[in-house]
């Protein structure tokens, strides 16, 4: 199982865009999640003193990814935290996709953490999730 992500030039001139891919739906979620965490802060500089469980269900996988990434942005503001990791699993049952994840991080502390961009939201600009054979790919633009 593997995933990857890269940041894209010139997709959103005032904001940040990334492309994630994986060899399964779950792995593309992992790639997109890692990219978003990297946009917010350098994950290796974040401790693991805060945790929160997330469970979300949607009919469509692309809707679920937007909801999940938006949930990360929500907790960044609501709890004032940045994230070290967000291990997740994805299930498909009875026509519904479900993500079960744990947000792991720590309260914002500019003295100890390498903070980056304060993401305000996940947009649907040029948002699309594609499957080409065994490779899943998604492009995401985040508003900063």
């Amino acid at each position: 199982m593997s995933h990857a992500f890269r940041f894209l030039d010139n997709i959103a001139i005032a904001d940040i865009a990334f492309e994630a891919e994986g060899d399964s739906a779950e792995e593309v979620f992992v790639g997109a999640t890692r990219a978003l965490l990297e946009v917010l802060a350098n994950p290796i500089t974040i401790a693991d003193s805060w945790q929160h469980q997330v469970l979300k269900t949607e009919e469509h996988l692309d809707d679920l990814l937007i909801e999940w990434l938006s949930e990360i942005v929500y907790w960044k503001d609501a709890a004032g935290v940045v994230f070290r990791d967000a291990p997740l699993t994805l299930h498909y049952e009875n026509g519904q996709w479900t993500i079960q994840a744990t947000l792991i991080g720590a309260p914002v502390d500019g003295g100890r953490q390498e903070l980056r961009n304060d993401v305000k939201g996940i947009t649907k600009h040029r948002y699309r999730m594609e499957r080409n054979g065994s490779i899943w790919k998604v492009t995401v633009v985040v508003d900063v």
């Binding site: 802060a41 903070l115 961009n117």
Partner: peptide, 11 residues
């Protein structure tokens, strides 16, 4: 800088 919180997750 001390009185006006700025950046990611600032309260």
């Amino acid at each position: 800088f001390r009185r006006v919180p700025a950046g990611v997750g600032a309260a």
